[in-house]
Design a protein around this nucleic acid. Structure first.
Length: 466
RNA sequence: GGCGCGGUAGCCAAGUGGUAAGGCGGAGGUCUGCAAAACCUCUAUGCAUCGGUUCGAAUCCGAUCCGCGCCUCCA
């Protein structure tokens, strides 16, 4: 079986066949670093992380580029409000972004190019478009892309440009463009830009939004590459414009497969600050949830399905993970330090097949998780019935690690019990052996106050974080 | 108006022609000094509504109702 993915360009599920067999080159639209990213943003980055990890699981080499948009209207406005140079202002949010990714256990991409470090590349690309007569300069010295001179415009969003409705926002600056739908490649300097300015052969200013992705993707991945992802809202105009710029400049097909993830809503409503349902990752961590729990919730819904974020679901994620941890603990106790068996039990082998078949089918995560949980039930039953030996348990642990290379939430949070808690646990065991129940219960309560729950198992007592 | 997504058990969510995965919750049971935790088992004659096609439909077709997204810089 081959890996099949949904391609927005063709609106159908296709087998992934990278230009260079075994090597996938992908570009993932990254954050605009003017603020802390919110959980809706992270939904997209987690989808991309799942994709990346699964590609590697399937044996592909992956070269992933994620851009950092560190110059645009919002970064400029906010940095000026705070009286900070642009670079200094965005540095804080870039650092926060990477630290959030680490909390969510997102694997690092190969390249994180920042827009402001690639302005010469963008200028060169715009110059090419000017030379080809596809771009033009308006009265205010900005440079626009003429969609009338790019016949394929609208193929990604499946828009018929002749029928595009003119909105209020379009009308405002229409006078300086040849066509209302033309988009900016370069914005002439404006006093609101302050010292955020670059020199170009046609005048001072700053790059438009779309051009950075075209310039940086070709630099790191080539003018044609395999896969480009982002949120659905990027289909139009951002990705449509990227295609136009890139293909008009190079004359080559830009991207073979486009994948877009649906939005996240909170309690069924679009996230917004006014509704009070707007959350950054930090907001959720402050409420006591872990990155791992948030990762689970954000990844557990199929990427093309809109994800309804609720705290109820976050609690459900916590419960599901705790069951997973319990299973891992049981396996580790049974396996001890025995070497893994050469083969998996039939139920584990079956889980691997089902897991792979599910993710091969356009990353059907629900079915993949079902395979994982079926394996947990089967494994627990086998351990109850003592049909799994130490070597078998060790082998299943290895399989769990393979699953985790894709899912990234199986490995538990480190939670080593402190010496004081372990001492109390020992005292309680002594009390129990002496059948001193009041003392035993008192110690149990004491541990509970310190945040530890005792689990009395046939193998002896264990401590778990409450 | 255009393009697109979706309505499946209390909640979340797979399944897209062969008789309803999985998770959470709930109910029973096992274990236990008692608990807790854990584990096991069970938990939708029905998939928005109404018609139609078919031996057979949650899945295909038509109509209707409801929710949501995008349509110029929002993942």
């Amino acid at each position: 079986m081959a890996l099949r993915i949904h391609n927005t360009l063709t609106r159908s599920v296709e087998e992934l066949q990278p230009a260079e067999p075994g090597h996938v080159r992908m570009y993932t639209c990254g954050p605009t670093v003017y603020n802390f990213a919110h959980i809706g943003n992270f939904r997209a980055y987690l989808f991309e992380d799942l994709l990346r990890r699964y590609l590697k699981f399937r044996g592909f080499r992956v070269t992933q580029v994620m851009n950092l948009t560190d110059v645009d209207d919002k970064t400029i406005r906010s940095s000026r409000e705070q009286g900070l140079p642009l670079k200094e202002f965005t540095r804080k949010y870039i650092e926060a972004f990477f630290s959030d990714l680490a909390v969510l256990r997102v694997e690092r991409a190969e390249h994180y190019p920042a827009a402001t470090d690639h302005v010469p590349e963008m200028i060169a690309l715009i110059q090419t478009l000017l030379d080809k007569g596809i771009a033009y300069q308006s009265e205010d010295r900005s440079i626009y892309f003429s969609i009338a001179r790019f016949p394929g415009y609208g193929k990604l969003a499946h828009l018929d440009m002749s029928g595009l409705r003119s909105g209020a926002r379009v009308a405002q600056d229409e006078y300086e463009k040849e066509s209302a739908a033309d988009f900016a490649l370069w914005k002439a300097w404006d006093e609101k830009d302050g010292d955020v300015v670059w020199d170009a052969p046609w005048g001072r200013g700053r790059p438009g939004w779309h051009i950075e992705c075209s310039a940086m993707s070709s630099k790191y991945l080539g003018v044609s590459f395999d896969l480009h992802t982002g949120g659905v809202d990027n289909i139009f105009p951002h990705h449509e414009d990227e295609i136009a710029q890139s293909e008009a400049a190079s004359g080559q097909p830009f991207v073979k497969y486009w994948m877009h993830c649906a939005h996240l809503v909170v309690d069924g409503k679009k996230m917004s600050k006014s509704l009070g349902n707007f959350f950054t990752l930090r907001d959720l961590l402050a409420k006591g949830y872990t990155g791992r729990e948030i990762r689970y919730e954000l990844i557990a819904t199929h990427y093309r399905q809109s994800l309804n974020f609720t705290f109820e679901a976050l609690e459900a994620a916590r419960a599901a993970l705790s069951r997973l941890d319990e299973f891992g603990d049981r396996l580790r106790t049974l396996a001890g330090s025995v070497a893994p068996a050469a083969e998996w039990p039939a139920w584990a082998q079956q889980a691997l097949s089902a897991f792979t078949a599910a993710l091969d089918d356009d990353l059907n995560i629900s079915a993949a998780l079902a395979a994982l949980f079926d394996m947990i039930t089967a494994g627990n039953r086998a351990m109850n019935e003592r049909t799994l030996d130490a070597a078998g348990a060790a082998a299943v642990l290895g399989l769990l690690e393979r699953f985790d290379s894709v899912l990234g939430f199986i490995k538990p949070e480190a939670q080593a019990a402190d010496a004081a808690a372990l001492a109390l646990l020992e005292q309680r065991q002594a009390a129990r052996q002496a059948k001193n129940w009041p003392e035993s219960d008192r110690l149990r309560d004491e541990l509970k106050r310190r945040g530890w729950v005792i689990q009395d198992t046939p193998q002896g007592p264990k401590l778990k974080k409450a």
